[in-house]
Design a protein around this nucleic acid. Structure first.
Lengths: 236, 236
DNA sequence: TCAATAGAGATTATTGATAATTGAGCGAGA
DNA sequence: TCTCGCTCAATTATCAATAATCTCTATTGA
């Protein structure tokens, strides 16, 4: 009843080491939030969490701080820490930023792509095709993230990578909130393929252009879905 | 000899309150880094800082964590915390991102600017003109930041604001490192004025276009300056 | 002379305890 | 009955102490 709420691996604090304890706790908490164990708006009491993971308050605090910067929790001084609750405006913010960052990443990626990178990108693309063929929506969702993460990685832009990652985590958060998946699998592929092609061919400006407004469509759709979910929540 | 190194206000921990202690310490440290009191590469020892500000190690730790996420210090687990040292590649990263974010901000700002915003932006622009007239480079530097911050604020995009702020702080960091100012004051004005005009007129796409590659030029110039400074550093 | 290594000193990581702050609940007075 | 202010329990903020780990130096052996 105590240990039972612990996500992830076996022992609480004993062998989670070989790197910082607070990072492990942050990882576990992140997992908890993204799987929906910890619900948006839920209060996270430091001493409770400390007891649950058999770790001190200070360690929990450091972990929460990490999640704060990732945008997964909100820390209100002397009030407490709460799991972030995203609304429609947040979703629009996130998608507009992702669009912008992914455009920049696509251009840079096209400019500096290597043969090794080409193989990686092509592998992801092949996986997407087979996911579409299999009609596997959940897998396609993962691959969508992986596709873009790959592009950002190829761009070799550290700060861009960092910012994009934060947005990706937040995207996952509201996908969890709304339980949304992609609808039109074929359409999704027909959007990703030309972009990949441009990057593979090193056509920077074309890649940039294709990546702009790439996710915007999803963003507005998902914002609507979220608004819908909020309405339902109010009714319930 | 102890208190003497304390930047900012009067008493160390006594009346710095009415909000979180670690934020105050973070502010003081940030100031120290941006004024060059704490030099890039310098090691920041937690207990030293704790003694200097008469606060505990934990408070210092929280402050350092904040600065870490701002990119002003690098935390290496179990090694220590060091003031960030930017190289040429970092400068290029920062400027390319600022360009991208500022373009997005400009478009959003043009779309949702209000009369109150217009007055604010015009006020900044007037201040820039008089700074140019007076040939005041330092003031012009500040106003350059303020100009862009204003645009980002007008855009009303919280996440964009957050990311932009981080980059602005990092920009200040290497301006401190290299002691660079703007050279061509008139040229600077002739770049900012059309952008302001487009935003004021609500011409979103034009604003977007003008903001793209706005700072790129500065970026490459400053990267070169930094490379130069590095060479000199090696020679010395 | 050089490489490996043991040990000392310094520094971070983690903890448990204490202080300060908040918000809720209760009761008195209008 | 409603509002204001007070007290108390819960929770965060801060501190001081201990444990774990790293770095540097000096010694040893080849």
């Amino acid at each position: 009843m105590d240990r039972n709420e612990i996500p992830r691996s076996s022992s609480p604090a004993a062998e989670l080491d070989r790197r910082n304890l607070d990072e492990d706790v942050a990882g576990a908490l992140r997992q908890g939030i993204l799987t929906g164990d910890l619900k948006p708006g839920e209060r996270l009491t430091e001493l409770d969490l400390a007891a649950r993971w058999r770790v001190s308050q200070g360690t929990i605090r450091a972990a929460l701080r990490t999640l704060q910067f990732e945008g997964l929790v909100e820390v209100r001084p002397r009030r407490g820490t709460f799991v972030t609750k995203l609304d429609e405006a947040d979703v629009i913010e996130i998608y507009s930023l992702r669009d912008t960052l992914e455009s920049l990443a696509s251009r840079h990626a096209a400019e500096r792509i290597t043969d090794k990178d080409r193989r990686t990108l092509e592998r992801v693309l092949r996986a997407m095709r087979s996911a579409v063929e299999a009609g596997n929506r959940k897998r396609m969702l993962e691959l969508d993230f992986e596709f873009h993460r790959t592009i950002v990685e190829i761009s070799g832009h550290k700060r861009l990578m960092e910012m994009w990652s934060r947005l990706a985590v937040q995207t996952r958060l509201f996908l969890t909130m709304t339980d949304q998946f992609h609808h039109d699998l074929d359409g999704l592929l027909s959007i990703h393929e030309p972009l990949a092609e441009a990057i593979l061919a090193g056509k920077a400006e074309k890649a940039f252009r294709l990546a702009s407004h790439h996710s915007q469509r999803d963003g507005t759709r998902l914002a609507a879905a979220l608004a819908n979910a909020e309405d339902k929540g109010q009714q319930a």
